[in-house]
Design a protein around this nucleic acid. Structure first.
Lengths: 334, 334
DNA sequence: TTGAAAGCGATACCAG
DNA sequence: CTGGTATCGCTTTCAA
């Protein structure tokens, strides 16, 4: 491991002061072109790069952003982080990634460890509903995918209500009246909003909301499978299902398959969230698609804006629009 | 933003020296229990947490690991990073994530930016074959998923050769003799090894390797689709296909579907790399599964071992075993 | 235009 | 056991 040279090494090598080297490295003026060149040359020759650690001690900023998210195997989160990292890097920031695995304890541990770890700002995809405003007083924070519940915290979320509304509306427009929903309550706000949007569509179209068609429970594939199974075994089963998350959608498909029902014929389906699965399954599945990448990108930009802006806007809430991707899993009735 | 207190604040508050505060915070002995308690209390009260930036200036270590990978939308990479982060965090390290998006320029830029950014070690999932030994002299490095090509660099990879061998062998054991492979050459070493393993199995079983069945090209879904399409339109098409990567497998399935062929009946298929898609498609797809999480975990542990060990072993090569998950996409011939 | 010196936040050695 | 102080690598007035 060749050890990196320090600013002193460069200064000594040239018999000049460290101040000058510092000026050159920071691209400040007040330094002669000749000197500048000499410094730059030996810096390169000695393989000198300023230590960010030392810089951040004095400058009190690290060009480091921390991102907290539940996991990376959920494509949604991976996609958000990917866009976040890219947007951050473009603006000169690096991204520190921490996974909470859905545990609120881990989330709190993260917050603690980020106080000392000098990061400039925090991006959080909460796993638990209970994010106190402890966060707000700490460092600049932006919540992604779910709103934080402190006062004046920024967040960028997807329009879950409207997404669910679109899904139900689509089903209704295709002649369905017996429509069920499988949603997760564990997803707190987002899951809840999807149920509301769904019900709103039925209400507006004057369809009756049958309690036995509202299947709200866990968010795992297992839960979804059980839910779909129960729904299709009802005396009067629905003709269409809205599966309000990717795993639930996958599970519904599996249940339908196992029940020997033909997807898109015996029963129609709309999912929430696009995926390779929905895209390539046969029949391909109609879904509500959210701009997942945008969430990460906008999140990063909002955060950096807060860091650099002199009058940081606070309490900003961005809600991203969704769109319906119509494929082959919905049958036209009547 | 309440600004964090410094060690001086704590010392001043108690009218003691910073040395003592430092000792307490670092859990050193040589400090009276009474004093220890007093310091701890006021530290908490003042919301004091040692600045890691300052610490790393003097200690020359940051407890920060940098991970470079092509992207996160590839589930394999996301899975590796997830396991890496967790293993690292358990051992007290944080993970800095940087994405190369497959560009070697980005990879080099990463290396450069990591010199100044004080990170203790580097984990790299190379996107390009050309990783000079520039890396070796920089900081402790471990390569994941593909071997680095410097001398004495550590790496943890999957046994691609054996995986492909298993896939072909399985197909052969089910009576297939006309077996094709769709592989990517862009995946350099890993793709190459898979072709070799595949051919080796045929050779050992005394099957002829027909050049027109060896379909080596790009790694995208588009490439895979074209490949499968071509194969099945041959005068004498294969009865089985080994798709040597996840996207290629998805593409092959799509092509087979579009050709109105029945997967698992008209044509058999084995994929490389498990996925939700392979698991939930109908028929479910037989695949070679690699322990993706292990790669990240082992990678992190190897790296940390190098950092902490007094006599770091170098040039270590770990090759992870694979296994075949038999599902429904392979038909037993006559 | 350049240099000297103070300071950032923390550690560690040396005294007492 | 506790305090003083040099030091880490770098930035930033303030003089020259």
């Amino acid at each position: 491991m060749k050890k990196t040279a320090t600013i002193k090494d460069v200064a000594k090598e040239l018999g000049i002061s460290v101040s000058t080297v510092s000026r050159v490295m920071n691209g400040l003026d007040r330094v002669s072109p000749a000197m500048r060149k000499k410094v730059l040359d030996t810096a390169r020759r000695l393989n000198y790069v300023p230590s960010l650690a030392a810089v951040s001690v004095v400058k009190k900023q690290t060009k480091l952003l921390a991102a907290l998210l539940p996991d990376l195997t959920t494509p949604l989160y991976a996609s958000i982080l990917e866009a976040f990292e890219e947007a951050a890097r473009i603006r000169g920031y690096h991204t520190l990634t921490v996974l909470s695995h859905g545990s609120h304890e881990e989330e709190m541990r993260f917050l603690d460890s980020m106080v000392g770890r000098s990061v400039d700002g925090l991006a959080i995809i909460p796993a638990s509903p209970a994010f106190s405003d402890y966060t707000a007083s700490l460092k600049p924070v932006v919540f992604i995918e779910r709103p934080g519940n402190g006062d004046g915290v920024d967040s960028v979320v997807v329009d879950n209500f409207r997404g669910a509304y679109l899904a139900a509306e689509h089903l209704i427009s295709r002649g369905h009246t017996k429509i069920a929903i499988i949603a997760s309550e564990r997803e707190f706000s987002s899951g809840h909003d999807r149920v509301l949007g769904f019900e709103q569509a039925l209400r507006i179209k004057n369809l009756r909301i049958r309690p036995q068609y509202i299947c709200v429970g866990g968010g795992t594939e297992k839960d979804g499978y059980a839910g779909a199974f129960r729904l299709m075994n009802l005396d009067d089963p629905p003709t269409a299902i809205f599966a309000a998350s990717e795993p639930l959608c996958r599970a519904a498909v599996a249940a339908i398959h196992d029940l020997k029902l033909r997807l898109g014929k015996d029963v129609s389906l709309v999912g929430f969230g696009d995926s390779d699965f929905a895209r390539t399954y046969s029949p391909a599945i109609t879904v509500v698609s959210r701009a997942t990448g945008d969430m990460g990108k906008i999140g990063a930009n909002m955060l950096i804006e807060k860091l650099t802006s002199l009058s940081p806007s606070v309490g900003q809430q961005v809600s991203l629009s969704v769109r319906l991707i119509i494929r082959e899993s919905v049958w036209t009735l009547g």
